[in-house]
């Protein structure tokens, strides 16, 4: 059994005309101990997808269809109490922008420590304190700074605090939502290394969200690329960024759009046009307008996610036609 199995998930937000789907029929699986990356431009539904796992979406949103099976339990069917038991104990989140995600009037120590005793009453205060200091050391913050407040830390250090906090209950799955945006390049690399090593050390699964494919390429076992609420392509990192290469025209453009953070800065080749407005009705492939290799059927038929072998799947008519040709 996989740790997380999302099937045909639809999440909608209300708008003037009724509602629109920010996540529109997404399948995603995360195995025990797997490090999965989720990429896509802002507004493509990455964060909505991620936050729907522990049901942390805003009140006006709605899970219209599909299921999220975590450890065999469907979280969409849980009530508030059942969700509270899972949150942080099983699934924790490293939120975007650590400055705002940390409470400004509480010491970082008490914020890291807070969930421990809430989820396990048998832990003594002393044990919780010790664990907090251990976690701080593990993310590279001297333990005497536990009594400091968030504003006394630099951006990178605050992100480390967030990571320590996410690990305080030793969850099975950590969702990291853009954990390194707004950090300088050196710090980005350090934080990524830290995330990877901690996950390996504690055998955690991780869902890493980033708009930057090169970040995912270096850290993840598997990546999924989202476009306009749907998964465009997914597969093992070794295939998508290696031997086989990215198949979906959108993934290919994305790869060219960002410089590699560890190597020389390449010229940034943006993608012309804008992502479609999700609030209007869509026919055909959603990327068709911006795609320079679009076929005539792309405008009318929605491409299915097709397995092209080696655990890699792509939702593109061009790719599936070539597949047919090969077979």
């Amino acid at each position: 059994m996989s740790l997380l199995e999302i099937r045909d998930l639809h999440v909608s937000y209300p708008n003037r005309k009724g509602e629109f789907f920010a996540v529109d029929g997404v399948d995603l699986t995360i195995e025990q101990g797997e490090f999965v990356g989720l990429a896509g431009e802002s507004g493509c539904g990455k964060t909505t997808l991620a936050l729907s796992i522990p049901q942390l979406l805003p009140e006006h949103s709605r899970i219209a269809a599909g299921s999220i099976s975590f450890n065999g339990v469907d979280t969409t069917a849980l009530n508030e109490e059942g969700l509270r038991a899972i949150r942080w104990k099983e699934i924790s989140v490293i939120f975007q922008g650590a400055l705002n995600a940390l409470n400004p009037v509480q010491t970082i120590g008490s914020q890291i420590q807070e969930p421990i005793r809430i989820h396990d009453e048998s832990v003594s205060k002393k044990e919780a304190q010790d664990r907090t200091l251990e976690l701080l050391e593990a993310v590279g913050i001297p333990s005497h700074r536990a009594s400091d407040f968030p504003h006394q830390f630099s951006g990178g250090m605050r992100q480390r605090v967030m990571i320590a906090m996410a690990l305080s209950c030793m969850p099975k799955l950590v969702i990291a939502d853009e954990p390194i945006t707004a950090l300088d390049v050196m710090t980005q690399a350090q934080i990524l290394d830290l995330l990877r090593s901690l996950c390996d050390k504690y055998k955690l699964s991780m869902l890493l969200i980033s708009h930057d494919l090169s970040v995912l390429a270096q850290t993840c076992d598997r990546v999924a690329v989202m476009y306009a609420g749907k998964v465009a392509e997914q597969g093992p990192t070794s295939r998508v960024f290696g031997s086989v290469g990215a198949q979906h025209p959108y993934t290919q453009r994305l790869l060219r759009a960002y410089p590699n953070i560890r190597h020389e800065r390449k010229f940034i080749d943006g993608i012309p046009g804008y992502p479609p407005d999700l609030s209007t009705l869509q026919v055909g492939c959603r990327f068709a307008d911006r795609c320079d290799v679009a076929l005539s059927r792309c405008a009318t038929e929605v491409p299915d996610l097709i397995d092209i072998g080696g655990n890699q799947s792509v939702a593109c008519h061009l790719v599936s036609e070539n597949q047919v040709g090969v077979q």
Binding site: K89, F95, A101
Partner: peptide, 14 residues
């Protein structure tokens, strides 16, 4: 509406 309130919710607090 601050982000740290979402964090608190994510922690499973009542």
């Amino acid at each position: 509406s601050e982000d740290y309130m979402l964090t608190a919710r994510g922690k499973g607090l009542s």
